[in-house]
Design a protein around this nucleic acid. Structure first.
Lengths: 140, 140
DNA sequence: ATACTAAATTAAAATCATTATAAATAAAAC
DNA sequence: GTTTTATTTATAATGATTTTAATTTAGTAT
């Protein structure tokens, strides 16, 4: 099942003349099977025989290709997710956990921003910050 | 004029038993007079006789006190702004410049997020990414 | 199948923003 | 003015990420 998803991504790589290496497949599988928003280090723990350098190189590459999104929020380290359908994020202030939630697209705000600032708008991000339920429980 | 704003912030410090040091006043003045979203390094260029360590210490402190907001977007370094009235940000993909714009508060989304994720919500951020007008001009 | 070549991987060192440490200084209270 | 304790500072440490340069390998051509 996870392998299916990984295989779907291969054409994206081939289209751009990139080589299909075991490491690239492992990195994609790692992100898919963790189902969350892993850091480079998380991925490395999952596939320890692939060097951290390679993981960083390919994460950067996949972001540039549009396969992944980079989420630079939180404690000065990035998390990564598949660039699937639009959604937003809730981030826990305590533990840094990121949870997805759906909400109608806020592209109206993009139009206003464009008019007010003369930027050529590409996309937006929306993050809600709070305390997740497990961290709420831990408060005495 | 800038000094007036700085002076308004002094009671915030005194209330919490913090000392009014020349360095703290300089840091606040630097942020106010740059009128933008300076990095720690920007501030240090502006007041080079205050050590970078002190600047980092106080930025962190001011964020904890609620006087400043930290904006961790962009190329792995933080920018800072006065925590004034609510607004949103447009960020240039090319040069990293941040520009403010106003839009009605999106707190409706917070309610939805809370219901869907069981987080205790504290606040939200919204950023629009694009290309600023100067960077648009530079494209041939 | 085999050899070739450019692309990819890797270990090691470098970089950059930020934080910790510990000694020197100075703000505020007496 | 003296004292106390917070603050500043230089220095070193940290941790995530990037660079470098040598080795390996995917994909193509033979």
């Amino acid at each position: 099942m996870d392998e299916t998803k990984t295989m779907e991504l291969i054409p994206h790589l081939k289209e751009r003349g990139l080589r299909i290496t075991p490491q690239r497949l492992l990195i994609l599988e790692a992100i898919i099977s963790q189902e969350g928003h892993p850091t480079a280090e998380d991925i490395h723990q999952y596939i320890p025989y692939t060097s951290l350098t390679t993981i960083y190189n390919n994460l950067k590459l996949f972001v540039k290709l549009g396969i992944l999104n980079e989420l630079p929020y939180g404690n000065g380290l990035s998390k990564y997710e598949l660039n699937h359908s639009k959604h937003y994020h809730v981030i826990c202030q305590e533990c840094g956990k990121i949870v997805d939630f759906n909400y109608p697209n806020l592209k109206e705000v993009e139009h206003v921003a464009s008019e007010l600032t003369n930027f050529h708008i590409l996309y937006h991000q929306f993050e809600v910050y709070g305390i997740c339920s497990s961290c709420q429980d831990e408060e005495s």
